[in-house]
Design a protein around this nucleic acid. Structure first.
Lengths: 250, 250
DNA sequence: AATAATTTGTACGTATGTATG
DNA sequence: ACATACATACGTACAAATTAT
């Protein structure tokens, strides 16, 4: 492929590190389509020669762009340009995952990865309004849209009130539908805490992310119509695939 | 200082990269206080000898921990342990920065970095309900709490309706107070879009972050009591210092 | 099906630059 | 001016994963 648009030029001893100059030029070239127009970058060695630097120096530049989410490197295959379309995930009093992403994706589904009954930790017990050490159901779930992992959630429920919840969820793939089996036809998002951090090893695997990727973490409490907490959940979203929309309808 | 708690041991050809093993051990040692209990790490060369690896290999481990926000490296000074306390920033219909952080910090202030009057971009014009190309006021502001930068915001206002806004803001350091000068005693957060990305060069400087740090980006529209948009803003929060609290009082 | 070629990842060595104290 | 400590850059070699032969 001819990449006529890329005119590499780096200046030594300019006060700006070579790898940074290269990263800046590559970012620009990718944006304008002069580089990686077919979604794929030339091999590291080729690029390093083109810029007139050592392969390691070029690798530093690539590493920076991988961090930013511009590129994705796969051992043995090559380095690829990341697509940047983000799904919009609404957070409101009526937040539900499946309805939230409706109309934005053709295919979406939720999978139950694991479930367990165990004594509640301090944080979980407090959020659900249970006595410390009460049994809770823990659900580990993964949600995908158009075949790509979007979020990975850990949810807790009162084991006494919601005995068998995991079984219902495994069948329906829906929290809302599972709650209905317990006579809860409606529920509300009480509060949500949003933070962001780098993906840990587990996130990388489950969400199929590159090292250094960012996850948006939403910690939420859902309550039934009477205001009693029924679900405590921590959801990790792949930050390069999702943005959160907070609707504050006053 | 004696750091008896740190018992370094790496296994070659175990399928796990040395730098990853070292990063894991260091993270754990830092968490338990066995390493960097005084907030400071031994020099890279010392650590590399302790782990029995090359200095570069140890640097890879440190780079990973800097990414995660566990460490902060300062050229010529040393490598330091990052403190992890996060401020909680509420997002609701009544979101205001100054009131938001009240009670959480002793000292907080907002500074006007720059301001300009310019034609509105497409996105800004649409958000403010203005004709494309209308003049808008742009405010670049920085907010600090206890001497540490917390957020960096870019705000836009209708230049016709809010002529002289920047001057009021420079004096008061408060959006709320400045709006009052224009007869707006109350306003509401209409919508907020939350995403996360790696800090760019400008973020690093303004928010005093280490390369690879994460910023939480909140894009918001504020409206007056009649529902007319009065402010469009993009705020970048240092993700390791802030978390967002979404209150959805249904 | 097995092997070779390609491509990214890890590790070490060495030298020099830059910022701090 | 000097020593210390982190940052950048080049070189070399081999490992690991994927793709082509």
């Amino acid at each position: 492929m001819i990449e006529a648009g890329l005119k590499p030029s780096v200046t030594r001893k300019s006060g700006v590190a070579l790898w940074r100059q290269i990263a800046d030029q590559m970012r620009q070239a990718i944006g304008s389509g002069a580089l990686g127009a077919d979604g794929r970058l030339p091999p590291e060695f080729t690029l390093s020669q083109r810029f007139g630097v050592n392969r390691h120096t070029l690798r530093s530049a690539i590493a920076a762009l991988v961090q930013e989410g511009v590129l994705r490197a796969e051992q043995g295959r090559g380095t690829f340009v990341e697509s940047r379309k983000r799904l919009s995930y609404p957070i409101s009093a009526r937040t539900r995952f499946s309805t939230g992403l409706r109309d934005q994706t053709r295919d979406r589904r939720s999978v139950l990865l694991a479930d367990a009954v165990e004594p509640a930790g301090e944080r979980v017990a407090e959020a659900l309004g249970l006595a410390a050490g009460s049994n809770v159901i823990r659900l580990e779930t993964l949600s995908e849209a158009d075949g790509r992992p979007v979020s990975r959630a850990t949810s807790w429920f009162d084991a006494k009130r919601f005995a068998g919840f995991a079984r219902h969820y495994a069948k329906t793939g829906s929290i809302t539908a599972s709650f209905q089996k317990f006579g809860i036809d409606d529920y509300f998002r009480h509060s949500t805490l949003v933070s962001a951090r780098h993906a840990d090893a587990a996130d990388l695997t489950d969400l199929k992310l590159s090292p250094g990727a960012i996850v948006l973490v939403a910690i939420a409490v859902n309550v039934d119509p009477k205001g009693k907490p029924i679900q405590f959940a921590e959801t990790r979203f792949a930050a390069d695939r999702v943005e959160l929309t907070v609707s504050t309808e006053a």
